[in-house]
Design a protein around this nucleic acid. Sequence first.
DNA 1: CGATTGTTTGACACTCATCAAATCTCGTGG
DNA 2: CCACGAGATTTGATGAGTGTCAAACAATCG
Lengths: 227, 227
Amino acid sequence: MLQRVEALRHASPEEVRTLVRLGLPRAVEEDGFFFFQDDPAERAYILLAGRVKMIQVTPAGQQVTLRTIGPYRLFGAIGAVNPTATYPASAQALQDSLAWGIASSDFRRLLQNNPALLLDLTHMTTDYLREMQERYREMVTEQVEQRIARVVVRLAGQLGRRIPEGIELTFSRQDLAEIAGTTLYTVSRVLSGWEKRGLILTGRERLVILHPHALAQLAAGSLPPAP
Amino acid sequence: MLQRVEALRHASPEEVRTLVRLGLPRAVEEDGFFFFQDDPAERAYILLAGRVKMIQVTPAGQQVTLRTIGPYRLFGAIGAVNPTATYPASAQALQDSLAWGIASSDFRRLLQNNPALLLDLTHMTTDYLREMQERYREMVTEQVEQRIARVVVRLAGQLGRRIPEGIELTFSRQDLAEIAGTTLYTVSRVLSGWEKRGLILTGRERLVILHPHALAQLAAGSLPPAP
DNA sequence: CGATTGTTTGACACTCATCAAATCTCGTGG
DNA sequence: CCACGAGATTTGATGAGTGTCAAACAATCG
């Protein structure tokens, strides 16, 4: 099962067994936390089931979602390998979730003994860095509607379900707002607009993309926003 | 000299010699480019003299500065190690600059043969990732004046010069705007306000921080902006 | 069938980008 | 050494884009 984990592609069967032996399962129910920002990074996690969001909270209490994690993906690893030794963000379960927790020291030992794994981790980190740089630029230069479109397109590719009508996503307006860096009111207005234009169907904590292509154009800025 | 490079802390003298032998110097004059975004990442660079900014440009031509590089720091390395094999950003010289260029293949070979170096690179990458996550949150949640204060404080610590009156920085309003994600007009207004309050002195492509503490408070949000 | 939680919509305020134009600074060539 | 011109900066006027607040409505759950 753990073979599916992208971070363990180059781990030997024996190493995987060691990880299984050294790690321990951790279940967190919806809205619960795996860990909090600035806490000492004691473990790295591999998500086995559910969905987790990585968030930062401002002193004023406003939440920003940095990314959402799906099954078989690693999280908390930056804290585990970085000399700072604290988590840079909090990990909150979007649904009831189950993860395999590996002590940071074991994780670091594994990486030291297996350069191929370390290289994989470097690639994952640089990939994520690329993405953050892009999203940073988007945040600075693009308008809300375009940013929301990007978020929806990205989430669709990552966590969307194919259904007869199109692609289904289950996120509340609030969730989308925290990811796109806006408010739930603005998300609501934008989604209503898209629904009027026939691009999507909306529901409570749910939306269905009818025309992925049009949304992609909105995200790319090649289709003008509604008047 | 190359011992000062943080990325080569764990390189053996022999490896450093090899790098010197395999690499080649590259001088770029002010406003020139070391490389462009999306170009194949042929080399990683170590800056020896000058200053370089890493930028992304939007289709509309708007510039966003991701970070500024000072002497003895590595740049272009993400492109060199990432499987994408292209640069995620452009590197433009802020002043006449000189860098040592190492072919990506040589750089990767070095990393493969020396896991300690790879680990250093991972630490540098995760550090930068932390910073990008924070700046992303700041961009989403904070107002312009606070963001500009953050930029100035950060640049002061990184590239500021101590002079009798305080800390001197040489950046144009346009430079600061591209870093803070705003316009040169807004930067000008904000700096004028600070000067009226006696926090800084301003000049052409130059500012002097008189009260670093007050600026730090502005950056942290604990000092209210001007009325 | 309440109660809770999510969503919609309107009214309004406010930050900040945009545009225009004047002013300032510095380097260069006469 | 001064005048000129290019580029940097300031400042005002204006408006678009979004956040904020309030209130009503809808969906889901026990």
